[in-house]
Amino acid sequence: MSVAISTFSAEDISHHLGELGALLHACVHDGASIGFVLPYAQSEAEAFWRDKVLPGVGAGMRIMLVAHKDGRIAGTVQLGCDTMPNQPHRADVNKLMVHPDFRRQGIARLLMRELEARARELGRSLLTLDTRTGDSAEPLYTALGYQMVGTIPAYARDPFGSDRLDATTVMYKLL
């Protein structure tokens, strides 16, 4: 079955909180460094979508793209457009995640391509992001044309709850 990419509204997020929570929960438990550490409950994952993402989508400051495959939400990414008045030309790539059941199928690449198309439609010519240094997403971003600016050491805690602090790599792409 093919992958379909759709744009989620605030109502869509609210309607799919359980499935979105399951996606985030699975990614964190699989070691994704996307801001959360173990232990991490499904209810916390659902609260993230409801309390952090839904308001931005509802206000038109965030675009949320969702990949569907085999009747399930397989992945998601967000385009943060809530920039300062001197930055209407740029946006942030946030929370690219693909459920472990759907990895290595090109879904992240499809989500990023659609995100870039949406950014262009909005007149955004610069995208920025950060990713854990050495993470599996780093080569993906490089292959998609993102340039590394540098790394920041000891940026975030390891998702497995250890005291280890991981570096982050800051990247950008001119569209």
Rank of each mutant, 00 (worst) to 15 (best):
S9E: 04
V66E: 09
C27Q: 01
L126C: 01
F48Q: 07
S136L: 08
S136E: 13
R62T: 13
S6Q: 14
H29T: 01
D92Q: 12
I13L: 04
G134T: 09
D163H: 14
L79V: 04
G18H: 15
M84V: 09
D92A: 11
I63W: 14
F160I: 07
Y146N: 05
T76A: 11
E46W: 02
W49D: 05
R164G: 07
F48V: 02
V149I: 08
Q105C: 12
P39L: 12
L38D: 02
C81I: 06
R62K: 10
T169G: 07
L110Y: 12
D163Q: 15
S43C: 06
P88L: 10
L175T: 00
M171A: 02
P153N: 09
P88K: 13
G80R: 05
I63G: 06
L54A: 07
G35E: 03
S2A: 14
A91C: 14
A22Q: 11
K95F: 08
A143S: 14
A45R: 08
V77C: 08
A167Y: 14
R124K: 15
R109S: 13
S2K: 14
D92T: 11
S125P: 02
G21R: 03
H99A: 06
R103Y: 00
H89R: 06
R50E: 07
D12M: 03
M1W: 06
R72I: 01
L175I: 00
G75H: 11
A156T: 00
E46D: 03
R50T: 04
I73C: 05
R103S: 00
L115C: 08
R50K: 14
Y141P: 03
T151P: 04
A167W: 15
E121C: 03
I5V: 15
L111G: 03
S136N: 09
H16F: 12
R50I: 00
C81P: 02
R104L: 06
R90H: 12
G71M: 13
S136R: 14
G71T: 09
L54R: 12
Q42D: 04
T168H: 10
L175S: 00
R118M: 13
K52T: 01
G58R: 10
I107Q: 05
F160V: 09
K69T: 02
N94D: 13
S9Q: 03
A156I: 02
G21H: 03
V37K: 14
L165T: 07
G75R: 05
H25I: 00
A59N: 11
